[in-house]
């Protein structure tokens, strides 16, 4: 059987001739996307230049205004970036969009810091604007906007330390983001210099509208559409290592095609949990989109409840998302997994087996103890169906263990993958310490970064 949407790059039998071109197309698509973003980020600034006469306030204060306008624009775009809108998510991949959203928060903070510093440097009497009691409302709105942003960043960076559940954090994140943008716009209206008249005012309002629409799409419209394409829990199976496989069946529709290595946001359809969604990798073969499976380890409030789900429970699947896949046609694959990071890898292997893929695979799989090795029985079966060699690495091996023990590092990889690494496409998924040790190892062994596809799993 050959499925139309295979894992990895396609096997020989269905290979298309444009392998390397795909990588180039992907880069140029992302380049175009960045160019579009850059254009949007400076549109209000350009509109001010067109619509306003030169000021007479000196370089520092004009630069302060420029950074303020850019900051407000970036803030509006930040709301739209993670919204999984087709035009944003398709060229980038949803996980790349979220990573970019995090990195651009640094750029936003830098723009705000430059704005504040230059306002004071340009005119030291502006220090009075920071007097909490005597400052005009426009300055108070700006301070409140910054406070909302600071709270937003603090709750994102220290979510675990603050013991915020994922659902609670998301609600807070949305509210603080909208609050910061609203207060920032209020500040611009109060300043009444560049953004309140003419095309620049309209553009800024338009960008804020785009941000808000992104949020409305993500939180209201999208869930409503997904509710029309539900999935039912078919089986709930305990796996080794404290994981649970959730087998779903598309109800009244053919299911959405996905590629191995991609992920989806799952949420229970009942109203009590309608706002709580969590991202998980597909663990099933991409050849059966109507019966997707997710293998989930109990870490937090939602994941701990997965084993208790009953067959027939309605689940909404927002996916597939993610661009975790090979960018060229390789003739061999090295897969490195740690713990529950095996889930996208097992999907790759199941799909390869369903496709009759004859290329060689080596899986280096790190676990704590032998009895905790998730999918260990199935991996034995897959070794018979595929040209697959599995190297188990245990952190706490049992007495008499003849296999590998310790960490997945350069020495271990060199022992098991002599000569294979340079020609291979390498996929990794696991917890941060394992990933960084394995990535260091691959670097020392001379594997080119563009052939390494790493995904860090996060616990939510």
């Amino acid at each position: 059987m050959t499925c139309a949407n295979p894992a990895l790059s396609t096997p020989q039998s269905v290979r298309s001739p444009g392998g390397m071109a795909t990588a180039k197309r992907s880069v140029s698509r992302k380049g175009l996307w960045v160019a579009g973003y850059c254009l949007a980020a400076v549109l209000p600034l350009a509109a001010v230049l067109v619509g306003s006469p030169p000021g007479d306030r000196g370089l520092a204060l004009e630069l302060a205004s420029a950074f303020g306008i850019v900051a407000l624009t970036l803030l509006a775009l930040q709301l739209a970036l993670p919204a999984r809108l087709g035009v944003v998510a398709r060229p980038l991949g949803a996980e790349v969009a979220i990573r970019l959203h995090r990195h651009l928060a640094d750029v936003l903070v830098a723009a705000i810091a430059a704005h504040v510093a230059l306002v004071v440097l340009g005119d030291p009497s502006n220090l009075a604007l920071f007097d909490p009691l005597g400052a005009p409302w426009r300055a108070q709105a700006a301070v409140a906007s910054c406070a909302a942003l600071a709270a937003l960043i603090a709750t994102s960076v220290w979510r675990r330390k603050l013991r915020l559940s994922y659902a609670c954090w998301r609600g807070l994140h949305n509210a603080l983001g909208i609050g910061a943008l609203g207060l920032g716009l209020l500040h611009a209206i109060g300043v009444d210099r560049y953004l309140t008249n003419g095309p620049s005012g309209l553009l800024t309002a338009g960008l804020a509208g785009v941000g808000l629409l992104g949020l409305i799409e993500l939180r209201l419209l999208r869930p409503r559409r997904l509710a029309g394409r539900p999935y039912l829990v078919e089986r709930v199976e305990r796996e080794h290592g404290g994981a649970t496989s959730l087998a779903l069946r598309a109800e009244g529709h053919p299911g959405r095609r996905f590629r191995s290595g991609q992920f989806a946001w799952l949420r229970l359809a009942d109203s009590a949990h309608a706002l709580v969604e969590h991202p998980f990798s597909y663990s099933s073969s991409a050849c059966r989109p109507e019966r997707p499976e997710f293998t989930i380890k109990a870490y937090g409030d939602f994941t701990s409840r997965v084993p208790e789900l009953r067959p027939g429970t309605r689940v909404l699947v927002d996916g597939p998302h993610g661009s975790y896949r090979a960018r060229r046609h390789a003739d061999r694959f090295v897969l490195i997994a740690g713990g529950i990071g095996i889930t996208p890898i097992i999907s790759l292997l199941r799909t390869a087996a369903d496709n009759g893929d004859e290329r060689p695979f080596v899986l280096v799989y790190g676990s704590l103890r032998w009895e905790q090795v998730t999918f260990r029985d199935e991996l034995e079966q897959l070794e018979r169906r595929l040209d697959l060699r599995v190297v188990h690495v245990l952190k706490e091996p049992p007495p008499g263990w003849a296999g590998e023990a310790g960490f997945i590092d350069a020495e271990l990889l060199a022992r098991h993958l002599p000569g294979e690494l340079r020609r291979a496409e390498v996929f990794l998924c696991g917890p941060p310490p394992m990933l960084s040790a394995a990535l260091d190892g691959l670097e020392r062994l001379g594997v080119a970064p563009e052939h390494v596809h790493a995904e860090q799993f996060v616990t939510v």
Binding site: V34, L45, E62, R99, L100, H103, L104, A114
Partner: peptide, 30 residues
């Protein structure tokens, strides 16, 4: 080691915004 494409994207956007702000200030204060 891992090729994180968001780094060049962020750097490009950051540089572009900085240049745009500088150009704006230079024109407005000229």
């Amino acid at each position: 080691m891992h090729h994180d494409e968001t780094r060049w994207m962020t750097a490009a956007i950051e540089l572009w915004c900085l240049l745009a702000a500088l150009a704006f200030a230079a024109i407005q204060s000229a």
